[in-house]
Design a protein around this nucleic acid. Structure first.
Length: 441
RNA sequence: CGGGGCGUAGCGCAGCCUGGUAGCGCAUCUGUUUUGGGAACAGAGGGUCGCAAGUUCGAAUCUUGCCGCCCCGACCA
């Protein structure tokens, strides 16, 4: 992409309404524009990141055996009355009436609808287990939206729903999502920790929040330090029993403030105790027959009897992750994108636009990097070098290639790593090989 | 939903207390000189001061109502 042809409205100054780094940088880098409290337009740069995250989340869901579908944003109130949630949900739910005065709502979640879909078709235990998911916009009329996309009213969420014949089988589904989440967050360049979460009236131990550590996190997290350094399982066979991977983690203490048990925490060796702020980016939950019961979602079992299916739901805050990743990865100059989600792989800085030699060299590298799949953003504007440098630092692409007359005289261009700040001079040909290798395409 | 704050040019702000017809920095446009980490000079454009009503000869400024936004708390992907 040529910058002159792109839509990248950058702000030089920090907007007054933004108080945390991710919100400030998303506004300054032209990623989002606020339209109302907690409601944002995604500008081109922001949308590219959102889509990259969405893609990784989708790939990991598919690997785990979940099947993608798409449910609507607008739902009929009828299903919600069936489960009793229409009254229970409260003012967080945006209620709408259509022209026929029928009660509708903008979905804050989809348990009721997926259960209705499931019961419409599935009759036998032989069709289980089932893991269905979609990635769809949700609306929750939060009391206090804040921090940009970290707590919006409209947000993009991946939500998976599992259906099993009994609780033991449901635990296997739960474990699949547990492992899939570890892999997902790892690919996003995040260290996510599974912490015990409140299971509400259902009880048991089958609910975990996945939190990433960041100073601006909304909740306090207490955990064993080893959890932070533990590698994600990576390639596993999702038809195997994954309990080992899950238990290796749940054996170590980890809880957010509301579930914190100071006595248990004190049993951890002192040098392994970690107290930090965390951002919740995922939540997995087993809730048994909470919806399948009242909605009569039943299948025939091998015993010839009807069984109410046991369900779980598994959410990832896709749009929140955009902010979360920035919170976890930025410096005083701007964002530092992990390669996996970066909006472009490399920025090309032409230090002297208008200089025939510099222009030609930039065009050449731009073309070759494009062909090499490095997705370059070429700053072909006539701005001064300093402006281009700070602009690239702000939007945080993993690499910058700086090309100017001085280097070209010696046959070299400069490559800078945004994360480490390391610079190296290479011939244009070597630079392309280097970037193609580093960006892994 | 309780408590606090803000709304003046695209962005960041001053002016308001003490009423007299709107200003600064950045950005934008034109020209000249510049160009390896946010250039300098000269000129130009851009605002019914959130909306409405009231007080007044006169309201950005005072009064009332409404709308919007932000922050702190209790709840949430």
């Amino acid at each position: 992409m040529r910058l002159s042809n792109y839509f990248l409205p950058l702000l030089k100054e920090t907007p007054a309404e933004a108080t945390i780094a991710s919100h400030q940088y998303m506004l300054r880098a032209g990623m989002i524009k606020q339209n109302s409290a907690g409601i944002y337009s995604w500008l081109p740069l922001g949308l590219k990141v959102l889509r990259n995250i969405e893609r990784i989340v989708r790939e990991e869901q598919n690997k785990a055996g979940a099947v993608e579908m798409l449910m609507p944003t607008i739902q009929s109130a009828d299903l919600w009355k069936e489960t009793g949630r229409y009254d229970a949900y409260g003012p967080e739910m945006l209620r709408i009436t259509d022209r026929g005065d029928r009660e509708m709502l903008y979905g804050p979640t989809n348990e009721d609808m997926i259960t209705d879909i499931f019961r419409s078709y599935v009759r036998s235990y032989k069709d289980l287990p089932k893991l269905l998911y979609h990635i769809q916009w949700k609306f929750r009329d939060e009391r206090r939206p804040r921090f940009g996309v970290m707590r919006g009213r409209e947000f993009l969420m991946k939500d998976t729903y599992s259906f099993d014949i009994d609780k033991d089988a449901a635990r296997l589904s739960y474990n699949k999502m547990f492992v899939a989440y570890l892999n997902t967050f790892s690919r996003l360049g995040l260290k996510a920790i599974p912490v015990k979460a409140d299971t509400g009236p259902i009880g048991g131990d089958l609910s975990h929040e996945f939190v990433i550590l960041a100073e601006t996190g909304e909740s306090e997290v207490f955990c064993h330090k080893d959890l932070v350094e533990m590698d994600a399982p990576g390639d596993v066979n999702f038809s195997d029993d994954l309990s080992d991977h899950v238990e290796a983690r749940t054996a170590l203490y980890a809880a957010a403030d509301e579930m914190h048990d100071a006595d248990e925490f004190a049993k951890i060796p002192e040098d392994k105790q970690l107290t930090a702020r965390g951002i919740e980016v995922g939540h997995i939950f087993y809730f048994g027959d909470k919806y399948s019961g009242p909605m009569k979602a039943k299948v025939m079992g091998p015993d010839g009897k009807e069984h109410v299916v046991m369900m779980g739901s598994y959410g990832v805050g896709v749009s929140r992750l955009v902010g979360g990743i920035i919170e976890a990865s930025h410096d005083q100059d701007g964002i530092i994108w992990p390669k996996s989600v970066a909006p472009f792989g490399v920025g090309i800085i032409n230090l002297k636009s208008g200089d025939a030699e510099a222009d030609a060299a930039c065009e050449d590298i731009y073309r070759q990097l494009t062909e090499a799949g490095c997705d370059p953003l070429y700053d072909d504007t006539s701005d001064r070098g300093g402006v281009k440098f700070s602009r690239m630092d702000l939007i945080g692409l993993p690499y910058q290639v700086t090309i100017g007359p001085r280097g070209l005289k010696n046959g070299v261009v400069e490559i800078k790593s945004r994360r480490t700040g390391e610079k190296q001079e290479l011939s244009p040909a070597a630079a392309i090989v280097f970037l193609q290798t580093e960006l892994g395409s």
